[in-house]
Structure formats: structure tokens, C-alpha cells
Measured scan of single mutants.
Amino acid sequence: IRCIGVSNRDFVEGMSGGTWVDVVLEHGGCVTVMAQDKPTVDIELVTTTVSNMAEVRSYCYEASISDMASDSRCPTQGEAYLDKQSDTQYVCKRTLVDRGWGNGCGLFGKGSLVTCAKFTCSKKMTGKSIQPENLEYRIMLSVHGSQHSGMIVNDTGYETDENRAKVEVTPNSPRAEATLGGFGSLGLDCEPRTGLDFSDLYYLTMNNKHWLVHKEWFHDIPLPWHAGADTGTPHWNNKEALVEFKDAHAKRQTVVVLGSQEGAVHTALAGALEAEMDGAKGKLFSGHLKCRLKMDKLRLKGVSYSLCTAAFTFTKVPAETLHGTVTVEVQYAGTDGPCKIPVQMAVDMQTLTPVGRLITANPVITESTENSKMMLELDPPFGDSYIVIGVGDKKITHHWHRSGSTIGKAFEATVRGAKRMAVLGDTAWDFGSVGGVFNSLGKGIHQIFGAAFKSLFGGMSWFSQILIGTLLVWLGLNTKNGSISLTCLALGGVMIFLSTAVSA
């Protein structure tokens, strides 16, 4: 259960009878995928790494000078000259100064003066180019299975845990398959586009800190620079940016070097996208990844198990997540596992009318040892309800109150669905055939309105939902006002479609 501690969480529900669903994975976010007769899966884009970055340009932001020398000439005696002028490691300046009897010249006039100092770069920052084909995306998957609280967001041991898996995709191999043991396998067909235009970005490294910066900004930095990788004795261009020549006297000129420019660069980098280094690879934390999940090989585990009949206890007080759902960790005293956990939410304890829904599909106890633990997640209705676990006299209950409203949740879900469709863009549509167009249209309606429909009408039977949709269509056909007619027709059509397409 990876997503319960992530604030940016998206719930995606598969269409009834569908074998695939489109998701948008982004750094700092987590996606929970639910479908009829399929286990619930949490998917998170953990890291995006980039390798084989080529150094484009380096800037010196802290330097020192040494070996200063000057040469001067009297008027009419030609130009002052130093051998160091031809050495690229030196920074030199030529000027004219007033000369006369007082400073060793027989004539009054302008004399030539040249001053040089050896330039040494102490600290530099480097910009590297990123090729999209060198990106690698690491995705962690977790099935809502027989897990306890100690396994949440624990990325170790996934090789031997059938509840978890790690997959890596690249532009050259965008397809992967996550093996989930008894739950089958989940196929991923990803489109490795981060949403960032790397043709316009460089990877900047300064003092063990890293950013993504725009090329134009990078090339306009007014500091000494050299092109390409460091060859040991780089040729620094624009050395004068960190060196200041003071007022010249008759035979000498003082040279000083400016202080470190790291603070000024940090100020200019305010708002830039931060990154990290992992050995020789860069780690990015921006952008998104679009994936199509193929769920035809994914299956529920323990459908044929019998119900657990022994007593359950709450190991922890049920807690609310950031998303309005409830996490419950229970301990089973029996030894008759594997068995299914009898769990439901009810409005009252007399009729036990089921409300809400299970995020953890078909929760089971897989071990036959005593005191096995299991964590599950529920989506309670707004208002008061009861969490009921167990059967008969051994069942345990917990009162729950959820604040908020169904309308607010439906609106929030619609906005999130619209954002998801905007990110998917043209990849969500198939114009290759008439059937493809209608299929894409259905998927689009489901992406945007599916979660809201589930919130508003999830407790009704599909037949009642179709009746309401048919009534809206009838009202649309018999209303003389054009805008009201079109609105009723659209709402009725969407409702009829979703009542037959969205899983219960």
C-alpha cells in the first residue's frame, strides 16, 4: 500500500470489461488503480535517471590570480610587451599612462603600459546536455494484498515479495511487465516523455548541487567559461569578468580578483528545477510519464477462499488518510488461513446495510499462523458509518465519521480527471477507425466523469442509474429551450454510458 502517505494521489477506475487503462505517473504523486474483478494496485514513479550526459560548457565562479607582471614604455618608444601576453592562462590589459620627467621619461606624453596576471579557477559549475534516449524511469508497484503497516513504502525485498514489484522503462524499451506472483502480471506500455523539453534544458552542477536550467539563461551567464570537458589546462574565455584592473600608474597597475560568485548564482537559480546525482547518473524529480496498463493477466487472489471465522482485533486505531479513506490494521487469532476477511461498512448496526467501498479488493489472510496481521483500506461514505470486521458474535466494529460532501468530492474528481486527460493529450485517442474513435470517446468520458459518477451514484443499482439517464434524455427531447435540451441530452447520455461502463 504505497499511496496512503502521498498527498498527491489519483484514483483511476477501469471500465467494466476493459483490459487496459491509461494513467499519468508523476514525481511526488501516486496512482491507485481499481477495476472490477482485479486486485487494487498502487503505482508510483520513484526516480527518473539520466546517463551519458555530455559537458557543454563550464563557468568559473571563484578564481585566484598570481605571478603579476607589468612592462611600460616612454612616449615614442613603441608598445610595451610581455611574453605572458601569448599565454592563455594569463589575463592581460594594455593601456596608456601619462609619462614625463617625473617618472623617468625625457618627453612628456602618453606611454604604453601592459599588465598580466595568471588566472586560476578555484571553483566552477558545469552544464551538461541531456539526450531523451538516455532517460530511465523506475516504477514501483504494490498490490493491496496481505501486507501490514511495516511494509508500507518499503522498497527492500521486492524481489521475493509477490505484493510488490519494480520495473524500469526507457525510450528504447518502453514496454515492461511486472510479475506479482499469485496476482498474475501487469503489463506497462509507457510513452517516455517527461513533459520537459530537454532540447531547451541543461543539467547544471555547482558545488555538489544540481538544477535543470534553460539553455539561453545558461549561455548568457557573465562569467569566465570554457567549452567542452575539462582537459586539465582549460582555456578560459572572458577571464576579465572576475578580474579587475585598478587605476594605472606610470610603471605598474594593481590587479585584484573578485570574490566568489556562488551567492549571486544561487539567487539567479531561484525557482529552477532541482535535481540530484546518483553516482555518474543524474536524478530528476520533475515531469511525468504516461503509461497504458494492460490488466488482462491480472487476477484476484483468494476468490475461492472461505470466510475467516475466528476473532479479529484492531492492532491500531483506524486512521484517516490524506485522501479521506480509512486504513485499518487487524490481527487474526485463527489458524484456518488462508481465508477471506469479512469486512464491510454499514450505516447502522441493526440492518448492516453496506455503504462505501473497499479500496483493498478481496482482502485475505494468507498465513495459517496465529496472530497474522493484515492492513486494508476503505472508502467510507460522508457522515457517520460503522466499520464491521468478522462474522457472528466475534465481529468487531468501529464508529467512523467522514466530513465533507459527495458533491465536493465529485467536483474534485472531475477536475482531476480533466487534468489527466489534458496530460494524456492525443495519445488517449485513436482515429484509425470508426470503432477506435468511439472507443476513445468512451475512454475520455470515463477518465473525466467516472470518479464523479461513482461518488454521486455508486450506491444505486445499474438499472436505477439507466432509468435516471433515460429520464434526462426524455426531458431533453421534450424541452423547447435549446440549451436546457442539449444539457439534459448530454447528461442523460453520459449517465447511461457510465452506468453500463463503470464497474460497481
Rank of each mutant, 00 (worst) to 15 (best):
L293T: 02
K283Y: 02
E133V: 06
V434D: 11
D189S: 13
A69E: 02
T315A: 13
L188K: 06
V502E: 10
P192F: 04
S304K: 00
N172Q: 04
D189I: 04
T309Q: 06
G150R: 02
T427P: 01
A35P: 02
G127A: 14
V50F: 14
M345D: 04
A319M: 08
G404M: 09
E276W: 10
G14N: 07
S503G: 04
V12K: 05
K419I: 08
Y202F: 12
Q147R: 14
N208S: 15
G432A: 14
A229C: 01
H214M: 12
E162S: 14
V33M: 15
G334L: 01
M495T: 14
V46I: 12
A311W: 15
M206W: 06
F411C: 09
A63P: 01
L196Y: 08
M125F: 14
V12D: 07
A80E: 07
T49I: 15
R94S: 15
S306E: 00
C339K: 07
K283L: 02
T170W: 08
V257W: 11
V328M: 13
G392P: 13
L96M: 14
K395D: 01
C60R: 13
T470S: 06
G145R: 08
K246Q: 14
G259T: 06
Q131N: 03
A268C: 10
V46C: 06
Q147E: 13
A310I: 00
C3T: 02
K480D: 01
L45S: 12
N208K: 12
G184V: 04
K373W: 00
H288G: 13
N439D: 12
C116H: 11
G259Y: 08
S368R: 07
V494E: 11
D22P: 03
F457C: 11
L269W: 12
G436D: 10
F285C: 07
C60M: 10
Q77K: 06
I389Y: 11
M349D: 04
H446N: 11
Q344K: 15
F218D: 09
V153R: 08
Y137M: 10
K251S: 01
L273K: 08
S51Q: 08
L135W: 06
M374S: 14
N362S: 08
F463H: 08
K283I: 01
A250E: 05
D42P: 00
G187M: 14
R164K: 15
E240K: 13
K123T: 03
S64F: 13
I445L: 15
S58I: 03
A250W: 10
M151C: 13
K93T: 12
R292L: 00
S70L: 09
A275L: 00
N237D: 09
G417W: 07
H266I: 13
G228W: 00
K283E: 15
T205S: 15
Q447M: 15
S64T: 11
G17M: 10
K84M: 13
W400M: 11
L135G: 01
E329T: 14
G100Y: 06
W101M: 10
T88W: 10
C291V: 02
I396F: 01
H226N: 07
S433P: 11
Y137D: 08
I65F: 04
M68F: 03
V364E: 00
A275W: 03
A413G: 00
Q261R: 11
A311Q: 14
E276V: 14
T353I: 14
E136P: 00
G392T: 00
V114E: 13
I396V: 14
W20C: 07
A428T: 09
D42Q: 05
C339L: 01
T470Q: 01
S70K: 05
P132K: 01
C121F: 11
S461W: 11
L300C: 03
E276N: 02
S142F: 03
V23S: 00
A272G: 07
G302T: 01
C308L: 03
A69V: 15
I365Y: 03
I448A: 10
G436W: 02
V21T: 00
R416G: 09
L113G: 00
K373H: 02
V243Y: 04
I359R: 08
F411T: 05
T321C: 11
Y332V: 04
K128D: 01
L284M: 13
V265R: 07
P380W: 07
V347N: 13
